[in-house]
């Protein structure tokens, strides 16, 4: 599929989820688009849609390694709650991006690409270079970890949400 400027907002959102930082996302996004423009002008074949996300992914990973990084460790996991959508409604996009960007690779990329809701399963597997089982496990554990974080950040009691004070 050819890439037009219509696809670019999603690419920026992906960079933002991957880095959790607007400046870093902007840098990764701009470098990717410039690289695509250079390739198009040269003898190389024109980049396709997946190329943009592949290129941006590695740029974001490299940028993420430069700053302060989350300490590796086992995150608590709980089952998804029926009230989760209402809890998520209370979040700011930046909070979600911070949480996703703190996840270890390749879970971070898997979550960022999956929640863009842009790609088919086959495209996701191609982008992430993994099997369906691996992707499924990363997404499922990501959900449970996020639910745990949600519960500790935004509690929900019978229709009313209360900030748990950890956002």
């Amino acid at each position: 599929m050819a890439v037009t400027t219509k696809n670019l907002p999603q690419l920026y959102r992906f960079c933002f989820l991957m880095t959790g930082d607007a400046a870093k996302a902007q840098a990764a996004f701009q470098d990717t688009v410039r690289e695509a423009a250079t390739r198009s002008e040269g003898d190389e074949p024109p980049p396709d849609r997946l190329w943009f996300f592949r290129d941006a992914r590695w740029r974001c990973v490299a940028l993420g390694e430069q700053g302060i990084q989350a300490e590796p460790g086992m995150l608590e996991e709980v089952e998804i709650s029926a009230t989760a959508p209402r809890q998520i409604e209370q979040l700011e996009p930046a909070q979600l991006a911070l949480w996703v960007s703190a996840a270890p690779e390749p879970q971070r990329s898997a979550l960022a690409l999956f929640y863009l809701d842009e790609f088919s399963l086959a495209e996701l597997l191609s982008l992430l270079e993994m099997k369906a089982g691996e992707l499924s496990e990363l997404i499922c554990s990501g959900r449970r970890q996020f639910q745990s974080w949600l519960d500790s950040t935004i509690a929900y009691y019978e229709g009313e949400t209360f900030d748990a004070g950890q956002g």
């Binding site: 959102r13 998804i80 996009p93 996020f146």
Partner: peptide, 21 residues
């Protein structure tokens, strides 16, 4: 629950503001 959870997160992702620049 999973579908509702995913839809809520995807909605939040779509709400990521794009810088004017």
């Amino acid at each position: 629950h999973q579908q509702a959870f995913d839809a809520a997160i995807a909605k939040l992702v779509r709400a990521i503001p794009v810088d004017a620049q």
